[in-house]
Design a protein around this nucleic acid. Structure first.
Lengths: 245, 245
DNA sequence: CTCGGCTGTGTACGTTGTACGAGAACGATA
DNA sequence: TATCGTTCTCGTACAACGTACACAGCCGAG
């Protein structure tokens, strides 16, 4: 048994995060490169051509710099991704929480969805390292819940429930459009046709009668916004009901 | 690059002569490979060493076969992943739905969580192509909802809400343990220490007072099962409330 | 016994992340 | 101004990856 194989690099207790390093204000006067510029360019590439297009080499070309240059600011590709995710979350505008917990949470959810859809690669890049700008989300949510008399565990659970729903929903939403793109179906018509033909075989097995019926009867199948909000309101209802607030 | 001359046979290390090889004609029985066997082995590797360890070459070695052999059964790595995901979902046991919609949905959610935690790479491998065994989930859920008088769109929305929550929740749960493993913190103590030191810096910025307070007060922070079920019950409450069922 | 078609092999190419050491630009010192 | 140490950047190089392509051995049908 080859039990304990360590794939990752060597990092020990003296591991300083990117964020910590970011704080020391660029010890370099000469820097054509900065973590922020790197992140910005990388996000641009990812937005335009997908996460797979983000290559250390591609990044270097885009920055007008040698392939290895970025490694001065980033210990590896993983850290680059962290930077990218944080950069994206920076554009999230959070409500000030003066409108009550429910309105606040609702609007947080909707805005996160917008941002994640705008940068659809983010859901696949997040492996749950909390970046500073990501932490602003729980901060805002918890602030909105503060003063309602919830104990810490319950408040955190509420927050977790909300983000679990939002991430899950956006993830499948993104996954779906991603799949269409991978399959090469660009127009809605093409997509419907292609998907239908693929589904046809599955349905013809007779294993999924319910699914077949509901799919054929559903009318708002393509209205992602409606689906998202319907689920969101359910979740919020549930939270309200359970906490009687 | 000139001189790409084949060296004499005796030059190759542990080289068996042509004649010797001619002597043992059949090291290979027929059809050693099947999609199912491929998937099973790949899942084994992924479970043991993570998704990154699943390489076409690694898979080949594991199967006792040449690197390209699997391509007879799979058009590329993407298809391999589909196979793997489907293989995992095959072990999901779904309730028969005779216990009412709520109990059914609850148990579906819990079982999906179990399976996904058992194969923690699946959440990152899914880019939303519906495999047959995955389709069994909506089938079961819709069957449980049937006869409640919901229209197709609402029923689908209920299903989507549930899976969004489940996937989102398990995803962050998996992401967290993944992060611990990547950072090299194996024991719970190490993890707490490492995470704490990393958090300490973020908290010291003063940007996240609420978060800091709630984190320090929370007691069930590590009870993932409780958190999952708390959220799940919220979601189910919400669905019940909204549909008055 | 031959032969076409599967199934597995071998080799090769282009791309990736990144280790490593040489080189170039700077501030401080002499 | 000349020199030095430090800091940033580059060029090269390597192992590992996914997979294209042509081939070889075995099977059952004729």
């Amino acid at each position: 048994m080859a039990a304990q194989e360590r794939p990752a690099a060597s990092e020990d207790k003296d591991h300083v995060s990117v964020w910590e390093r970011l704080e020391q204000p660029t010890p370099a006067p000469r820097t054509t490169l900065t973590p922020l510029r790197i992140a910005k360019v990388a996000v641009g590439v990812a937005d335009a051509e997908g996460l797979d297009a983000v290559t250390m080499r591609r990044l270097a070309t885009e920055l007008g710099v040698a392939p290895m240059a970025a490694y001065r600011y980033v210990t590896g590709k993983d850290e680059l991704l962290e930077l990218m995710v944080d950069f994206v979350y920076a554009e999230l505008e959070l409500p000030d929480g003066k409108e009550g917990w429910r309105a606040t949470m609702r609007s947080v959810a909707l805005r996160i969805r917008e941002v994640l859809l705008r940068h659809s690669w983010v859901t696949r890049a997040t492996w749950c390292a909390p970046t500073p700008n990501q932490l602003a989300v729980p901060e805002a949510v918890l602030a909105a819940l503060d003063g309602l008399g919830l104990d810490a565990d319950t408040a955190m659970a509420v927050y977790s429930t909300l983000t679990a729903y939002v991430h899950g929903a956006v993830d499948t939403e993104v996954g779906l459009t991603q799949m269409l793109r991978v399959r090469g179906w660009s127009t809605r018509e093409e997509a419907r046709a292609g998907l239908a033909s693929q589904m046809a075989w599955l349905m013809s097995t007779g294993r999924f009668p319910m699914y077949a019926r509901y799919i054929s009867e559903a009318r708002r199948k393509d209205d992602q916004q409606w689906q998202f909000e319907a689920g969101l309101d359910s979740v919020l209802d549930g939270i309200a009901a359970r906490l009687s607030i």
